[in-house]
Design a binder for these strands. Structure first.
Lengths: 243, 243
DNA sequence: TTTAAATGTCTATTGATATAGACAACCATA
DNA sequence: TATGGTTGTCTATATCAATAGACATTTAAA
């Protein structure tokens, strides 16, 4: 279980160790005590100096995952990971269900623009047709979970920005604009290291992982109504596909 | 498009830059020339010294993604990313389709063991019932794409290791053992940094990302026949979910 | 054949990362 | 109220990552 950390790889030891501890917390390895093992023990396990472990724990404390108490130890503050079901009926808010007390959708910005090749292809428009672009961040219990860029056919969903800002939900915004139901047609999933914009929007630290989905929703007639590129903080979520 | 590498984050600049170039290659940014921009240009774009860019390119060359030619430039050798459709009929080999010339499934090891809580839950067995565990690595065109640990009910699929070794495919191994068809019931997806075992099995460099799926297949009567934890090299694959 | 543009190699220096040891401060409990 | 176990802080040193500059070598094109 100890497992070795790798030197001279361009990834600092303290960062590798932070990641290992984060995963151990998430896996419930320390559930019995509710605490991370003492720094000296961790240092021995990973084969590094105690100071290096302290750097790792400091990073986790910065994220609010652990809290060190002098004389006692390092307490675990959070260990949850949100589960997102992906299916025909994929929706952010109902998907979260009772996993969080409170979910919010914040509109960071919006614009009208002409569709580039990628957007046009997904929405089955001609390149150059006008689309509405929404930049949003979704939070659960105050923690940012995902940031999304969404495109909608402008003609059909002219009032989208206002509707989203009012309802804080794509589903409810669609409803306000006369689309009572829609289905998820396609989802693509990849993973990458967080970019500068992710660090800001999702309150991540550099080197963190983002799960990226490209998704297309259609109305019940199969006409595309939304294309979204969504970036999730990978250590806060998992996806479930039920067939 | 330029800039935005982060300093003092525990992730070396050359590693961040390698990741950015890797993604640009994958996105087709350099398709016109088939070459990466000159080192001096990249250095200016990222705001770092040329030597730092050279470290990044050296890492990509080590992976066989680019090849530097003195006097000419740095050529792109590979840019593909395999697409995995995930659906009721998810299978590795047919999913790959014509994306690779050759796919292989290698059996690294196998064992009989009693099911732990997690395996028992997924396979709907009682904890302690005997299961067969298979450790496999799947390759496309000689490059490792995923490493998997799979569990099967021992009673029903006693000859699994031999059948897999012979056929190099789960689907064909099932067929040999009398199961002509099966369906994917559930898939869970997460992402994490590669661990030491991943680096070996998938020929990755430390800091790389792995996409992790936990999947359960059933026969046509809904009886679980396989539970797998599969780790994919994130920069070589993407998943597509079609509803 | 010359030249410009590109990668390859070398030296030197600075700043970040990691190790090592010592000791202070704090907490729980025997 | 001691005591052992824990986190917090300090100093010093070694190694890795990154910058800086100079120049060699190779290629393609003028």
């Amino acid at each position: 279980m100890a497992g070795q950390v790798q030197r001279q790889t361009g990834v600092a030891l303290w960062r590798q160790i932070a990641e290992r501890i984060r995963q151990a917390i998430s896996a419930g390895t320390y559930d019995e005590t509710g605490m991370v093992p003492p720094e000296t023990v961790l240092a021995a396990q990973f084969g590094v100096n105690r100071h290096t472990v302290r750097s790792a724990l400091a990073a986790l404390a910065q994220e609010g995952i652990v809290r060190a108490v002098q004389g006692r130890g390092t307490l675990i503050e959070r260990k949850e990971r949100l589960n997102f079901p992906i299916s025909k009926r994929t929706r952010f808010n109902s998907g979260i269900g009772d996993q969080a007390r409170e979910t919010r959708g914040l509109l960071l910005g919006h614009d009208e623009e002409s569709a580039d090749d990628e957007v046009a292809r997904w929405l089955k428009l001609k390149p150059g047709e006008i689309v509405i672009r929404l930049e949003t961040v979704r939070k659960a219990d105050g923690r940012p979970v995902s940031s999304a860029t969404s495109w909608f056919p402008a003609e059909r969903f002219a009032g989208m920005p206002e509707a989203y800002q009012k309802t804080e939900s794509i589903t409810r915004a669609f409803a306000e604009l006369g689309l009572s139901d829609y289905v998820r047609a396609t989802t693509e999933i990849t993973a990458a290291h967080a970019e500068a914009a992710d660090l800001m929007a999702l309150e991540l630290t550099p080197g963190a992982i983002v799960l990226i989905t490209k998704a297309m929703n259609t109305d019940l007639d199969g006409v595309p109504v939304q294309y979204s590129v969504t970036r999730f903080a990978a250590d806060r979520v998992q996806f479930t596909i039920e067939n």
